[in-house]
Amino acid sequence: MDYSPILISMKTASLSIAITFFLGILAAKLVADISREKVKMILDGILTLPLVLPPTVAGFFLLYAFGVKRPIGRFFLEYFSVKIAFSWGATVLAAVVISFPLMYRSARGAFEQVDQNLVYAARTLGMSEWRIFWRVVMPLALPGVASGGVLAFARGLGEFGATAMIAGNIAGKTRTLPLAIYSAVAAGDMESATEYVWIILLISFLVVISMNWFTARERGYALREAKK
């Protein structure tokens, strides 16, 4: 069995979740603070779009923007000598774009569930907005934010359609686990496919377990009340 897909997938999923996590929180914070309902709705729609689009469509748009002869792709090639399409970076790009909405939506939901009176109270006590975010909002939203991160990680790990479009299926370079399963089945190598499937199953199961753990943490304050 070729182990490179496992390695590539882990690398891709790890880097993409690091990027998605911060982008998602940033976007969530920005959107949650917008007071104009219409602007909020439209912006939210745009940011959520990759979640509802077929991944191949998202991949199509990525290819359209980052292809070597396309504006962004050409810019990167000319100024940084970096070719994005069909490189390992493209697997990260695809994973980030596809998993971003999950992170963003979970974080936003978590932020909006924080009792607004706590924020008001913090303001009347002279706490700066920065301090309020890190000392009040973030700790209270953390369980929701963390479970969003776990979900986004799982989605990035399982990314297939957009990755195939923008990164291709180059063995040892852009062939992630889902692509490796597809290729193995296409080549009639059911044995390798089964092994890859088991690995994905194991990771996914761990993800679900850790999600539940975070949700239990969410009820932590209530539990602590009951204990004493």
């Binding site: 009792d115 109270a121 700790p139 304050y221």
Partner: peptide, 11 residues
């Protein structure tokens, strides 16, 4: 400002 539910930070 004393809020109706006191708005203590629960964490």
């Amino acid at each position: 400002y004393l809020f109706q539910n006191y708005a203590l930070f629960p964490h």
